[in-house]
Simulated scan of single mutants.
Amino acid sequence: MASRGRPAALAGGLVVAFGVLVLVAMASVALGARSVPLSTVLDALTAPNGSSDHTVIRELRVPRTLLGIGVGAALGLAGALMQSLTRNPLADPGLLGINEGAALGVTLALGLFGLSDPAVYVWFAFGGAALASVVVYALGSSGRSGAGPVRLALAGIAVGMVFTAVASAVLRMDSQTFDRMRFWLTGSLAGQTSDVLLRLAPFMIIGLAVGLLLARPLNMLALGDDAGKALGVAVTRTRVLTAVSVTLLCGSATAAAGPLWFVGLAVPHAVRAVVGQDQRWALPYTMLAAPVLLLAADVAGRLIARPGEVQVGIMCAVVGAPIFILMVRRRRLAAL
């Protein structure tokens, strides 16, 4: 009976997580430099009258909230996929330099080629994310000890710093591009329109769908490549599809909101502490919990600095950095 009750409890937990996400999304729409009553929010969504509050809600806060949901889900799922595939507890799109690679791609598209359409420069983000993945894995797996967690993390930090330095050099050459991207490079959900969301949403949706479909083969690969093969898993195809999903998720999320750290690192660990290692549950839970964290950080950044705001990238770093330090200090990490 206990084994039958656990799936029901986990399914109920998903419903609760979705409800929490809805509540945080409503708070994101209602709270900001000027707070708006929930009744006004509902009126703006159902019967807009053209007032200033309704215009702000529909044209600024709703797109920002939807973007936060998409970016949070993308980064959270990307981190969970990377940690599962590599069996590396430190795998994270920001920590392994993937977000910085995507950011470099966007910087080159805007600074050198003058491409301002998100549907165009997102391809540069994909290329930068893929390049960073290859370089970090090659550096982290060199030598006799192989691709250990700490080696990959150090390689990712080094590669991310190099990519960030190159992006900074490009921005220094063009003051207009620098002014446009300085907040984006910190990581921000502000200033994006619904058009940006619509252009990038297909890439996020495809990446999320592919990632969720990989839950079963990733469960089997957790036993090792040989055991996975014996259970019928196509190891190479699973790795390729995971890489494609991570690239789509990180590239589109970074193109939309800039490089954000620690969302893909902290949330999967918190989720696995609750639901266990089964990716069939861990992945969808992460996809719901990550945007809760991102939107909550975004709302907190707006409230603590009224009438201005603290960018969500800074808020995520404030939350995620202590978690990262605690993970590195855990004794069992050194034995992985």
Rank of each mutant, 00 (worst) to 15 (best):
G313M: 12
G68T: 07
P291M: 08
G140A: 09
G79M: 07
V196I: 05
S194T: 12
A102M: 08
P284D: 01
V310Q: 02
M181H: 15
L66Q: 12
G101T: 01
A74S: 12
R58F: 02
L197Q: 02
A297C: 13
G143T: 01
V319R: 15
I323K: 00
R237I: 02
L90S: 00
G105T: 01
D225T: 08
A305R: 09
S142Y: 04
P7K: 03
S142T: 01
A296T: 10
P37F: 08
L10D: 01
M181A: 15
L112M: 13
F203A: 11
V235K: 15
F126P: 07
G97E: 02
L38V: 09
S252D: 14
A129Q: 08
G70K: 06
T164I: 00
P291K: 05
A155Q: 02
G19R: 09
A334P: 10
L21N: 05
A11E: 03
S52E: 14
A33Q: 06
V274G: 11
G5N: 15
A165H: 14
M204C: 12
T65N: 12
R151A: 11
V134P: 13
L21E: 07
P291F: 03
G72C: 14
A78V: 08
G13D: 00
V120F: 04
L221F: 01
S168A: 07
G211K: 04
W281N: 05
R199T: 06
P322R: 03
V271F: 09
A297R: 09
D179W: 12
L260C: 13
G191V: 00
I325V: 07
L198K: 06
M315H: 02
L213D: 08
V41M: 12
L108C: 15
L288E: 02
L288G: 03
V16W: 12
I69D: 11
L21K: 07
A296L: 11
L42D: 10
L67V: 11
G146C: 07
A243V: 12
Y121T: 06
Y121F: 14
L75H: 01
W123M: 00
L112V: 14
R199V: 03
P268I: 07
A289C: 13
G128V: 06
V328E: 05
V36Y: 10
L283I: 06
V136I: 04
A119T: 06
R64N: 10
L212H: 10
D226W: 13
R64T: 05
P259E: 10
L108M: 15
H269I: 14
G13L: 04
L66S: 07
A9E: 06
F324H: 05
I69N: 13
T242S: 13
L60F: 06
A273S: 13
Y285G: 09
R237K: 12
G301N: 05
